[in-house]
Simulated scan of single mutants.
Amino acid sequence: MHARVRAGDPDAFRELFTSYAQLVYGYAARATGDPGLAEDVVSLTFLEAWRLRARLRDEGESPRPWLMGIAVNVLRNTARAKRRHERAMARLPAREPLPDFADELVGRLADAEQLAAVKTALGRLRDGEREVFMLCVWSGFGYEEAAAALGVRVGTVRSRLFRARARLRRLTDEELRREPPLPRGQVRDDCRMPAVRSHVERHP
Rank of each mutant, 00 (worst) to 15 (best):
D103N: 11
R108S: 09
E201G: 04
R192W: 14
G151N: 03
G60A: 09
R153T: 14
A7F: 15
H199N: 08
F13C: 06
R4P: 06
A49C: 06
F141D: 08
A88K: 05
R163C: 09
E131W: 12
F46L: 06
D11M: 01
T172P: 10
V157W: 01
R130N: 05
T172Q: 06
R160G: 02
M89Q: 10
A3Q: 14
G60Y: 02
R163K: 10
G123M: 07
M89K: 07
P93Q: 04
V42I: 03
M134V: 06
H85F: 00
T172C: 11
L171D: 09
D111C: 06
G69M: 03
F13K: 01
M1E: 08
V74L: 06
E39V: 00
A102W: 01
D127K: 10
D34A: 00
M1C: 13
V157F: 01
F141A: 05
D11W: 15
V74I: 09
P183R: 08
A38S: 09
T156I: 14
V42M: 02
R4V: 00
R169Y: 09
G123L: 06
R55L: 13
A117P: 14
W138Q: 11
S62L: 11
H2K: 15
A54T: 00
V74Q: 04
L122V: 02
Y143T: 07
K119S: 09
R57Q: 10
Y20D: 08
E179L: 03
H203N: 10
Y27C: 10
D58P: 00
E48T: 03
R124M: 08
L105C: 15
E39Q: 00
Y143K: 11
A38W: 06
A110V: 09
R124N: 09
R64H: 03
E15W: 02
M1T: 06
F133P: 04
R30D: 01
Y143W: 12
F13P: 02
L125C: 13
F162R: 09
R76I: 12
D100M: 13
L168W: 01
L182I: 07
D190Y: 12
G107D: 08
M1K: 05
A164L: 06
E15Q: 11
H199C: 04
C136W: 06
L171H: 07
D127P: 15
Q186K: 07
L23M: 13
V72C: 14
R51V: 05
R30A: 04
V187W: 05
